[in-house]
Nucleic acid binder design. Structure first.
Lengths: 170, 170
DNA sequence: TCCTAATAGTTTAAGTTTAAAATAATCATC
DNA sequence: GATGATTATTTTAAACTTAAACTATTAGGA
């Protein structure tokens, strides 16, 4: 079906498709699927083993990592969710006695939250098991594959952040 | 601080830590962060450009891919969400005239949904723009990096699925 | 046929999540 | 020290999401 002797030139590959982003789309779908799959399993196990939800676990993990009290705004930034979301999550955790919450000493707008003794104890127990789950989930990967994945996901993150910042500047 | 002349044997490395899953945890955190970052940006753009939510867009994407009507159960499986979730999403899309829904011919329990003409038109327009966003987000990656990421995420998915199946068999 | 198990979907209650508006306090600077 | 902008948080309304209970239907055997 090709015209005999038709010359191939540089423009040929530009014309082939209006825009061929097939590989990028497939990458995004796979990234999303992979995360959703793992997230769902962790969520299920947290509920079954500890009657705990993932967002609450995440909030507690942030507080455990930072040894000192944290403002709600700092929490929402680290968890990458809205302020209002953190307000509600913290409320429930306080009600359950896992979280402490008091006004910040230097800023009457801010609230400092931290794990209670009971909260820290409960989190540490869950965290140990949780670690095992994650290790089990990635069991099929070699250390080298994990390294490479880390590096490439890091580059993907940078690339995404750049695009987002560029988008905000318009 | 090391005892002089103390012999190193095979057990030394077993004792070092109860369980060192550091790399796995970091990988999971990065995977999650990366996905959340991109997902948030896509969500924001869908809302600003088309007054559309991500879950609705996802549902429409599944229907556009499969040229034929699909049952709600099939949809929920492909979207990796619960049945009840799809029921609600579909309801809203039907109300907006983007989705068609009718009883399945051979099974009186099942409902077949498909895009209306208007729905398909609307989706195609959004999808074209959406493709561009994704390409922009991954702009900083070379084709080789994308290939490698795809392959390794594929292996991560397999590893996770294996762990999940093993967990269900208990 | 009749009974049981499995399947498709809906409903319910609780929780999560967001965007946007509102409130309150701090900061910068004049 | 007044004032206007910014910041921290809460509130609100709507949508999303889940697990579990429920209804209706189908399928597979005794």
């Amino acid at each position: 079906m090709e015209e005999a002797g038709a010359p191939l030139d540089a423009e040929t590959k530009v014309v082939e498709h209006p825009a061929d982003h097939e590989a990028d789309i497939r990458l995004w779908l796979r990234l999303f699927t992979c995360t959703t799959l793992i997230e769902g399993e962790i969520r299920r196990r947290l509920r079954e083993s500890f009657d705990m939800t993932l967002p609450r676990f995440d909030l507690m993990a942030q507080l455990d990592k930072a040894r000192v009290g944290m403002t709600l705004g700092e929490l929402s930034e680290r968890m990458m969710v809205t302020n209002g979301n953190v307000t509600g999550l913290a409320e429930r955790l306080v009600a359950e006695g896992l979280l402490d919450r008091r006004p910040a000493p230097n800023d009457r707008r801010a609230q400092l939250v931290s794990l209670t003794t009971e909260g820290r104890r409960a989190f540490r127990a869950m965290a140990r098991t949780h670690e095992g789950w994650i290790a089990e989930i990635f069991e099929g990967l070699t250390p080298e594959e994990i390294d490479t994945l880390m590096r490439l996901l890091g580059r993907a993150k940078t690339s995404a952040r750049d695009a987002i910042v560029r988008g905000e500047k318009e």
